[in-house]
């Protein structure tokens, strides 16, 4: 087994383990920290695929900003002690059936998938680099790119409108 492949397996194991720990850990802060670890291992996968820009942006946006906000909100609400909601056996059975069905569907779908084999002669190793990514985005996919930026602008204006203090609202 070559080093890249063994590293891939190690990284995949770590990814799955930390993703499982997100849902298995009792403490919400621990869940968030495991989720951050999951983002790091995903960035490791991007680097293995030679997509360095995607790896860096994944860290900056998800681990650096969004997860900080997650942590921020959980710390503010201070949900330390777990309030067991009304979970009777009926909801548990229903959840198990739904989850199991989704797992079977996904497994069946992925089992038959054929991944197109990569041709080592025509494969361009620089495809994930920032230069080629920028050229692709601004030449072939300019319209979707601009539409996405307008969507983000609308979201930003909406957030500002929601956060704005109404006239007559008290300061605190």
């Amino acid at each position: 087994m070559n080093p890249t492949l063994s590293f891939f397996y190690f990284l995949s194991f770590l990814t799955v383990l930390s993703a499982l720990m997100v849902i298995l850990s009792k403490n919400p802060i621990h869940s968030v920290l495991y989720l951050i670890l999951t983002f790091f291992t995903l960035s490791g996968h991007y680097i293995l695929l030679n997509a360095q820009f995607l790896a860096a942006v994944n860290i900056i946006v998800y681990a650096g900003a969004i997860m900080v906000l997650f942590l921020f909100v959980i710390m503010f609400l201070n949900v330390k002690d777990i309030h067991e909601e009304a979970k009777n056996s009926l909801t548990k059975i229903a959840a198990a059936i739904v989850g199991g069905t989704v797992f079977v569907i996904l497994f069946g779908a992925y089992r038959k998938t054929i991944i197109a084999p990569a041709d080592p002669n025509t494969f361009d190793s620089q495809v994930g680099m920032i230069e080629s990514l920028g050229k692709l985005l601004f030449r072939e996919y300019l319209l979707p790119f601009e539409l996405a930026s307008i969507l983000l602008l609308v979201a930003m204006v909406g957030a500002v409108m929601l956060g704005k203090r109404e006239i007559g609202e008290r300061h605190f």
Binding site: Q52, F53, A56, V57, I59, I60, A63, G64, A65, V68, M129, I130
Partner: peptide, 13 residues
Amino acid sequence: NIGILYVFGVVAL
């Protein structure tokens, strides 16, 4: 070749 993004990511962490 993404040096400055690396620095920015580390600062964010």
